[in-house]
Amino acid sequence: MGTNWDTLRPILLDAIGQTLWMVTATMVAGGFLGLLLGIALYSTRPGGILANRPVHTVLNVVVNIVRPIPFIIFITAIGPVTIAVVGTQLGTGAATFALIAAATFGISRIVEQNLVTIDPGVIEAARAMGASPWRIITTLLVPEALGPLILGYTFVFVAVVDMSAVAGAIGGGGLGDFAIVYGYQRFDWAVTAVAVVIIIVLVQVAQFAGNRLARRVLRR
């Protein structure tokens, strides 16, 4: 059985477009929300610039509950919320919403971990200069941790590509779905291989760009 690339090509292009859309939207929206949540986790910890034990405990527990749920289960379990927000629990939009939600919690931990490495003395110096907590967050925390943050986001990018392959479970399409439906289920290894190669290229390009950017920021 030969592979009919003429019919598959438009489907493959659609799948690539869906993956790129899902990953990009997740990195932008989830990246931003994860940054906010990570900063909140970091700032409210005991001894932090906005130390607040109740808030910190609540955030911590919520993140710890959501993060370990396998994405294949999360994407279906979040269904009611997806319907409320997106209007449907099927399709690329619904899958993207689930991806953004999951990524937000995952990224928040990575952001928190990177912020913890900032020398507390530098933050104390800023406080001694009369900087407000908000100013410290915007002009000190993020710039000081930018290099490691870029590497952290690059790591997340790969994880998001991985998660996006599950989108097919709720009709979200994408390269993962393409590989399973047109490759695995039709015993057509060539199709699977093509999908795999495209994903590998996508990940390589992202990792390369992330490494370069981080090196520039870190001046090493």
């Binding site: 020398d119 003395g121 530098v122 104390e124 110096a125 800023a126 406080r127 001694a128 200069m129 009369g130 900087a131 100013r135 002009t139 000190l140 710039p143 000081e144 930018l146 920021v217």
Partner: peptide
Amino acid sequence: VRLGIGMVFQQFNLMRSRTVFGNVAYPLKI
């Protein structure tokens, strides 16, 4: 009050992400 009190630290506590100029300009921005 803190704007009128400078502080120097044992470990210097400079921002690694800013140049010497940027570090000295930081309190002026605040």
